[in-house]
């Protein structure tokens, strides 16, 4: 997994997002055991307490659960994983729309730009 951090948000909230992405994309598959806090912290290059805090929060949301001695596991509940996927997507869409509206585009223009972009991509595929 690639871990990347921006300067404008707390590190633990960024960790929550990135572990969520890992779960949604299958880097951390449903039902699998997560590496130890220390290993995950070392891999992400972050403070172990911060990683612990992020995982505790994910546990509260139900995306991961812990078994007293065996460690932390990713949920097997696909509805929950899909909901997380949807909420990540909504965030991306929101950021995108804010940027586009900021540039002065209207709803119809944005939709037509997206459609056009998809069309070009399809065109590329066809010619390739």
């Amino acid at each position: 997994m690639q871990w990347q951090f921006s300067n404008d948000a707390p590190i633990y909230t960024q960790l929550i997002q990135q572990v969520k992405v890992g779960i949604v994309t299958g880097a951390f598959p449903p039902g699998e055991r997560l590496p130890s806090v220390r290993d995950m912290a070392t891999e992400a290059g972050v403070n172990p307490n911060t990683m612990q805090r992020a995982l505790a929060e994910l546990e509260r949301d139900g995306l991961v659960y812990s078994l007293r001695t065996a460690g932390r596991f990713v949920t097997e509940d696909n509805t929950m994983i899909n909901a997380a996927k949807r909420s990540l997507a909504q965030r991306h869409v929101k950021t995108f729309l804010e940027a586009m509206l900021g540039l002065g585009f209207q709803k119809e223009e944005i939709i037509s730009l997206i459609t056009q972009e998809f069309g070009e991509e399809d065109g590329d595929h066809a010619s390739a």
């Binding site: 300067n7 404008d8 948000a9 707390p10 403070n47």
Partner: peptide, 15 residues
């Protein structure tokens, strides 16, 4: 704490 600074100031400790 690092995350309190980031949360309250909206900037990194470095900034």
């Amino acid at each position: 704490t690092v995350d309190d600074i980031r949360e309250e100031k909206g900037m990194s400790v470095d900034e």
